[in-house]
Design a binder for these strands. Structure first.
Length: 596
RNA sequence: GGCCCCGUAGCUCAGCUGGAUAGAGCAACUGCCUUCUAAGCAGUAGGUCUUUGGUUCGAAUCCAAACGGGGUCACCA
């Protein structure tokens, strides 16, 4: 049983014994004691004054006396107003540390048997990835890892938006202006090459609109009547009809884009177990519409379009199928939800999608519920906020988007520069140095994007993102490197890192106590992060752990300690901190170096 | 306008299943490297938790309204 549960149980027993009050241990609010007071757990007595017929302080005293006498885990207590602070026996903490050392699965939940699908990334194939995609990719990868740690069977899926008018735009521009340029001939990465033509299309399209407006046409009309957009629409129709020339071009250009994406994905360290392509799924969902009509939960209007009425759910009426029988966005998603269920029998299906689609996912879930789908309840939207720049919103039309590949390269360059300035790479081979720059760059970037609560809109400040001090990825990585140095030295000296190595060591220093408390808490943090789909919780934890360790490191000497058991204890403690820094950072997709 | 989200130190963010004097980092200032990595540690300063009401022994946290910011209300995706 976990220590906190044990203590809750003891307090519950004490309440019964002293006041004849019956409270389930699970209902008791037990909180960590604030740093300025002595103790580890605090019990608030205010809520029990009526039932006990006594003042909050007296209750604290009486419960404290009882616990000190009857609870073997409780060493001492103090009462401040209505707060009963409990001091736990040192031996209890040391035993917990021994348990952690002997349990390689501390923080890895037992298999739940649940299948969890995490869909993330889901890029369009007409332009390269940008900063917003990075938040999406890092979140998706991290949540998937966190769900694994919570014992679930996780599948990472990527639903690629590889068709539609936007793809045709870059195809059309390429057809007109491409001169058979290829990634090989131009030296431009495939996704960037496609993006180049998308931009060229947009430019030419705008010129056409301006011209039409100059001739006196209304702007809205001009947008619809410009020859280029009409051509793109014709191309989309040809694509849907399977026109060979169009499909070949589409294949060729998408192929370039996929090569580019693969490289970026590899570079940023994310991966997928399953790819879905919209070109293969966009017609799905019509059967679901049929099903809904049969069940009488959808209605067909005289013009042939199909609708669902969600006003009872506090939503609106929603179109599910056009009058001409073609699909809309939601139709496809109904289809893919079913397809994913057929493929993976998920208990939970997480969609990592920006918060501008909150309404869409409410509708999707509501419609699936109306259809009586058993998997509807497991549909969850991990909605995240947009990434803003100091200059404001990112707008592709205004060219203010931050390109993912460029950003990563800049981070690496900065890492190199800072590391060289500090003279930290003595004894590194060129290859090792390069590896370190990469690890630090990605650590800084990922941590910066993941430390903020996903739900919140966030500001990306380039200067702060490459900071290596304070609440940053590299600070945590640095702590790991420091510990690694200690462990190397311990190994050289032949000191074993084992649960038995510190014998009956006693007299924990305050900083050591803090560190152990954090290590003990690790599984609860993993659970919480999984429940809330919040990598930010893991990030905070890793930071707290690193900070607590650095305090300890600064105040207490390890190798100058003459008491062998104390020295061995500190080495063992250090080894555990390294392990849980590595693990919690691993759940964020961040690697930690041995030296830096 | 309807619905949804957000508003905490100069800046970026924690805290939000109600509990003690509201915490970090950055920026500013002061100390600490002949000792295990100073990418570190300790400290000073900085707050009417947007405002007003309500619930409560107790509210940054829950409820309501106002103000400010964002999103969304497409036969786009």
């Amino acid at each position: 049983m976990h220590l906190q549960q044990t203590i809750s149980q003891r307090i519950s027993e004490a309440l019964t014994a002293v006041y004849n009050i019956t409270v389930d241990a699970g209902q008791l609010a037990l909180q960590p004691t604030r740093k300025e007071f002595k103790g580890s757990f605090t019990f608030v007595t205010f809520p029990y004054t009526k039932q006990a017929g006594k003042g909050p302080e007296q209750i604290g005293q009486e419960l404290g006396d009882y616990l000190k006498a009857n609870a073997p885990e409780v060493n001492d207590y103090n009462v401040v107003k209505g707060f009963l602070n409990l001091v736990i026996e040192e031996e209890v903490w040391l035993n917990l540390l021994r348990e952690i050392m002997q349990n390689p699965d501390h923080g890895q939940a037992t298999p739940s048997g649940h299948n969890v699908l995490v869909e993330y990334s889901s890029p369009n194939t007409n332009k390269p990835l940008h900063l917003g995609h990075l938040r999406n990719n890092f979140l998706g990868y991290s949540v998937a890892e966190i769900m694994k740690a919570n014992g679930h069977n996780v599948t990472k899926a990527n639903l690629v938006n590889d068709r539609g008018i936007h793809i045709c735009k870059s195809m059309l521009a390429y057809q007109k202006m491409g001169n058979n340029e290829t990634p090989q001939s131009s030296g431009i990465k495939g996704d960037h090459l496609a993006g180049k033509y998308y931009v060229l299309f947009d430019r030419a399209y705008k010129e056409e609109i301006d011209e039409l407006v100059a001739q006196g046409m209304d702007k809205e009309e001009a947008k619809k009547k410009a020859p280029l957009i009409l051509e793109a629409q014709t191309m989309l129709k040809k694509w849907e009809e399977g026109d060979t020339e169009t499909v070949d071009l589409w294949r060729k250009m998408n192929g370039w884009v996929y090569e580019g994406f693969d490289e970026t994905y590899r570079n940023i360290g994310v991966d997928f177990d399953k790819f879905y392509y919209e070109s293969e799924t966009y017609t799905l969902g019509k059967e679901r519409v049929e099903e809904g009509l049969e069940k009488g939960v959808f209605t067909k209007r005289p013009d042939g379009s199909v609708w669902v009425d969600l006003t009872e759910d506090g939503l609106d009426e929603k179109l599910l199928l056009r009058a001409d029988g073609t699909s809309v966005y939601i139709t496809q998603d109904l289809g893919t939800a079913e397809l994913k269920y057929e493929d993976f029998q998920y208990n939970e299906s997480i969609y990592v999608v920006a918060d501008e689609q909150n309404y869409h996912f409410q509708v999707l879930k509501a419609v699936l519920k109306k259809l009586g789908k058993p998997y509807a309840e497991g549909i969850n939207h991990l909605s995240y906020g947009m990434v803003d720049l100091p200059s404001g919103k990112m707008k592709s039309r205004e060219g203010t988007v931050v390109d993912a590949d460029e950003l990563v390269q800049e981070m690496i360059d900065t890492a190199r520069q800072q590391t060289e300035e500090l003279g930290k790479i003595e004894g590194f081979t060129a290859e090792q140095a390069q590896q370190l720059y990469y690890t630090l760059a990605m650590g800084a970037l990922k941590y910066f994007l993941l430390k903020v609560d996903p739900k919140k809109r966030m500001l990306f400040n380039p200067q702060e993102s490459i900071d290596f001090r304070g609440n940053t990825g590299p600070f945590i990585q640095y702590t790991h490197a420091r510990i690694s140095a200690i462990l190397r030295k311990a190994t050289e000296m032949g000191i074993p890192v084992e649960a038995t190595s510190f014998g009956d060591f006693k007299n924990l220093h305050e900083t050591e106590q803090e560190v152990i408390t954090l290590l003990v808490n690790y599984p609860a943090v993993v659970k919480e992060a999984g429940k809330l789909y919040a990598p930010s919780i893991m990030a905070s934890y890793a930071y707290e752990l690193a900070k607590a360790y650095n305090r300890f490191y600064q105040e207490i000497s390890i190798f100058n300690e003459t008491d062998e058991q104390a020295r061995n204890f500190r080495i063992a403690l250090s080894a555990m901190v390294a392990r849980f820094i590595r693990q919690s950072m691993g759940l964020l997709g961040i690697q930690v170096p041995e030296r830096m």
